[in-house]
Every structure is written in structure tokens, then in C-alpha cells.
């Protein structure tokens, strides 16, 4: 071949409207997996800063004046944190449901319905997320 033309990655995100179910499932699974890793480290950071509570006296802890309680109450008082918690639940639920779907795919079960099981994971994630809103949003901002 004397000369040819390399068009690079044609199916980039500019063509997202043309992606099929399996492709979306893959993208969401990567995304949610790495979000969970991100949360894990944030979680460790928050807990390790507030762990100083263990050296406080019982009286301070009972008065809810220790670092642990004040940090967590401070965070939970923020509307943004409540929103992020709902997001975390959605991300975790989707990852688990689609993860189960992928395990089925690995076992060779129901491969012809892989698109339907992806849509089912999405719907169930949506339903569980919406159902969780009242729980997450109680007494926010007080």
C-alpha cells in the first residue's frame, strides 16, 4: 500500500447516539466501578481524620462533642452530601445489578437477552434510587 488514510477512532463519544445496549452497559460498568473505588478512598480519608474520637473520654463522646460525631454530623447536614449519597447508592446498585448480569454472561446464560437484562438493571436502579430518596433526605439542613 503506497498510501492510505487512517481515520482514527471513528466510534468516539461524538457518536454516542449510535451506541447499542451492550456498549452502554460496558461504559456504565467501568464508570460505576471506578466511582466506587473513588468513594472507597474518600471514605477512608474521612474516617481516618475523625478516628481521633477513640481517645476521647466517654463524657465528651456522650455529649456528642468528639471529632467523629461533629465531622459526620457536619457532613450529613449538607444538602450536597445527601445528594452525593443518593448518587453513591445509584452507582453501587447499578454496578451490582449489571455485575450480576455480567456474571451470567460469563456463564453463558441468557446471552440473547443481554440487552433486556441491561435495561432491567437500569430500571431497577432507577426504582431503588427513587425509593431511597425519603430515607436519605430526612432532616436535611437542620
Amino acid at each position: 500500500m503506497s498510501q492510505s488514510y487512517n481515520r482514527g477512532l471513528i466510534e468516539d463519544f461524538g457518536r454516542w447516539k449510535e451506541f447499542s445496549a451492550g456498549m452502554w452497559a460496558w461504559i456504565f460498568h467501568k464508570f460505576t466501578g471506578w466511582m466506587l473505588i473513588g468513594y472507597l478512598f474518600t471514605h477512608i480519608a474521612v474516617l481516618s481524620t475523625s478516628i481521633g474520637a477513640s481517645s476521647e473520654s466517654t463524657a465528651v463522646i456522650q455529649a456528642e462533642n468528639d471529632v467523629y460525631t461533629t465531622t459526620l454530623q457536619g457532613l450529613e447536614g449538607l444538602f450536597l452530601i445527601r445528594l452525593l449519597e443518593i448518587g453513591l447508592l445509584a452507582v453501587a446498585v447499578f454496578h451490582i445489578l449489571n455485575g450480576l448480569r455480567l456474571l451470567m454472561v460469563d456463564l453463558g446464560i441468557g446471552l440473547e437477552s443481554q440487552d433486556k437484562s441491561f435495561y432491567a438493571s437500569l430500571l431497577l436502579t432507577g426504582a431503588i434510587t427513587v425509593a431511597s430518596v425519603p430515607t436519605f433526605m430526612t432532616e436535611v439542613g437542620i
Binding site: S20, A21, G22, M23, A25, W26, L102, V105, D106, Q114, D115
Partner: peptide, 9 residues
């Protein structure tokens, strides 16, 4: 293979 199903589609 990451089971994107693109080929099968």
C-alpha cells in the same frame, strides 16, 4: 473480550 456485544450486533 469485554462482552460489549458490538460484534454480535
Amino acid at each position: 473480550c469485554q462482552t460489549q456485544f458490538s460484534c454480535t450486533e
